[in-house]
């Protein structure tokens, strides 16, 4: 049994910010130690949640793309949205694999958002609101509570 990565990173943050920083003689050196400590603190949060965040986001974006495909007037974009939504399941659970899927999904999501803004009708307006809610939710998923 080894200590979990977030525990280790928080320990590193504490060592850098509380123990090392006051011992460093120059303001620039203190600044570097402070930033290293802050990064360890941030990465402790991110390492624990990254897979969960990416999984939830990929599912949410794929659902919007599937629904958008039914109402988009541009058939080529509809096909791209459907295709992207269909390839959301990762072959493994590495962060890099899930991030690559997230990048593909969000690239099409941007195209869909732009197209829906120019699409008339109640269905388009309702979908546009869902897209904005997903953008808001994406900032909540990435929020670092203790820092900002």
């Amino acid at each position: 049994m080894t200590p979990e990565a977030p525990k280790v990173l928080n320990g590193m943050a504490s060592a850098l910010l509380v123990k090392l920083m006051p011992e460093v003689r120059t303001p620039f050196g203190q600044s570097v130690a402070g930033m290293a400590g802050m990064l360890a603190f941030v990465l402790a949060q991110e390492s624990d949640r990254a897979v969960d965040r990416l999984h939830r986001e990929n599912e949410a974006v794929a659902a919007i793309l599937r629904d958008a495909a039914a109402i988009l007037p541009d058939e080529a974009l509809s096909d791209r949205a459907r295709e992207a939504a269909g390839t959301r399941t990762p072959p493994d659970l590495r962060v890099s694999t899930m991030q690559a899927i997230n990048d593909r999904l969000r690239a099409v999501f941007i195209e869909v958002h732009a197209a829906i803004e120019d699409t008339p009708g109640d269905d388009a307006r309702a979908l546009e609101e869902r897209i904005w809610e997903e953008i808001r939710e994406s900032t909540r998923r990435r929020h670092l509570e203790a820092l900002m």
Binding site: L43, I135, R136, S138
Partner: peptide, 26 residues
């Protein structure tokens, strides 16, 4: 190290601020 500090602390914060500026924060 200022580069990843900025990336982790400000990129998402800037999205939040942008949503407020656009009136799309709620």
């Amino acid at each position: 190290l200022i580069m990843p500090v900025v990336a982790y602390t400000l990129i998402n914060k800037e999205d939040e601020n942008l949503l407020k500026s656009l009136g799309r924060d709620k």
